[in-house]
Design a protein around this nucleic acid. Sequence first.
RNA 1: GGUCCCGUAGCUCAGUUGGAUAGAGCAACAGCCUUCUAAGCUGUGGGCCACUGGUUCGAAUCCAGUCGGGAUCACCA
Length: 615
Amino acid sequence: MNIRWVFFIPLFIVNLHFQYHFKFMLESKLCQAVIKAVHALYGLELAEKDITLQKTRREFTGDFTVAVFPFVRASRKSPEITAAEIGQHIKDNIEEVFDFNVIKGFLNLSLSKIYWLQFLNNNFRQTDFGFTTSKENEVVMIEYSSPNTNKPLHLGHIRNNLLGWSVAEILKANGKNVVKVNLVNDRGIHICKSMLAWQKWGNGETPETSGIKGDHLAGKYYVLFDKNYKTEIADLIANGMEKESAEKQAPLILEAQEMLRKWEAKDDAVIQLWKRMNNWVYEGFEQTYTRMGIDFDKTYYESSTYLLGKSIVEEGLDDGKLIRKPDQSVWADLTEEGLDEKLLLRADGTSVYMTQDLGTAHLRYHDYQPKQMIYVVGNEQNYHFDVLKLVLKKLGYNWADTIQHLSYGMVELPAGKMKSREGTVVDADDLMDEMEKTAYEKALELGKIDDFESEDAKHLYYTIAMGALKYFILKVDPQKNMLFNPTESIDFNGHTGPFIQYTHARIKSLLKKALDEIKPADAEIEMLPKEKEIIRLLHDYPSIIKLAGEGRSPALIANYIYELAKEFNAFYQEITILKEENEELRNFRLVLSVFTSNIIKSAMGLLGIAVPERM
RNA sequence: GGUCCCGUAGCUCAGUUGGAUAGAGCAACAGCCUUCUAAGCUGUGGGCCACUGGUUCGAAUCCAGUCGGGAUCACCA
């Protein structure tokens, strides 16, 4: 028992900084050890980059593995002998390395039990383990959601919102000073369509009188506009007009365009209607965001940035950086950069999408001077962002390079891509309703909520429904298109959010029953392979957070935490914890459990997924 | 047609800067609840990592080409 004191006294004076770098320090130390060994043995100079240090695969003995093939030219010996010599050198010089073995040209290093136990004991209670707690001064701005105010949010927005929010959390965990912003596309012809249809056929209907959520109500009139517009086009074509002219001359579209002109001229009645309907929509959005657990630090409105965009363009024109065509439209010539010319102002002086984005970027830059501006926008807009950056550079804004487009793949339905016009959208609110309903039915079926108060039960299946939905979306690499099949509802078993939530609830239940006061693990216990595997996974967490931050990929967190939960479940099933009679072993397993539950909670938190105490 | 992205088990997806015998889940089949929560665990079957060539000690991963799928090249946003 003296051993314990020798080992554990120094652990309590370790500071946070050291703990965060626990893993990185070790990996770096091992790399340095390899470099020194290779230099001492063969006189070869290497940098850390030249060393491939990786976790030892499960089927071999060891913790970290170095491939020595790159060094055999210098050693002039077989890979086996080279590895053995390097291994011996490291074992003799690095105290954490307890043993080594060589298979083919792979050198497997085993760390001492003491190292792993120190790691556990230092960190198992920390709820922010793996997080960078010191905050950088420079701002990283991230934009996501960016809805139009003429229709409710759909599945595509769900992926966007969840990604943006999660990436923001992951960046915070990496010590970034993050500002989350939304950009609301609140002006333009699409809004006028909803407004016009409501004016014509709405009979004064409001969210209150109809009981319809505001964003859905606006969407209803947008659809109604489109329906009647199509009828008009069909009538005109039946009367012998070409399709193209029919689309341009249908009375409804002309009326909508007239409304947009009035809006730009600040016509009082139109502005009043616009404000009224947009406010309905904002209330609707707010409910959806809240339910989704999404929030923003700042909201920008296109209606208040498009004028700035226009003035930027005018300025560029005066400086001779842009060109005006005979019809008075204004363009950026990007042919030197390998792209086309891009329209920035129409002949009638009104602005386009790009114009307002120039204004928005400018405004944001001057509001926060961010080091980076990340835009979470679908990959269908890759070209738009290439152009945006080039135009800004052309205009002489050297901060154009701070813009980074976080381009994510489309959510596809079995029939193909979602299209609002074709009515093949999956509505966000409907989907969440559906998920909750399924979660409720499952819980009922399994008898999970029998002894819950009704409010608690409701909260539980909300938590599980959102867990299933969010995990389903976030576990996929953002870059890739993903498939969502509405008829096969999202699973609650297997590689899913509820699986991980369940693992957490199980651990919490276990800890509630534990009568012991949990203390640092004893140095003399023997670890089983499954226990060791869990520790190794826990040890990975900080580097996963770092990778996820650099790659802007919540999927890395999602897949990591699944691995951990799976490993813990296998351990839980096979090995008794509370009923273990050896007190030190029981304590050690409880330490593992506490640490695992903390990391599950922390990692799921980065995905925006709550974990229940029981389920 | 130009540019960009993708192609891994029947389906949905993982696969760290190139490393050892390519992994999960779902679906199918077979087991495990008088013992810490069975939304769990264990096992079986299922693969020319689209194809061809190249780089190298080593390629699902890098390069070139071919074939498939998607996006984009709007005075829509």
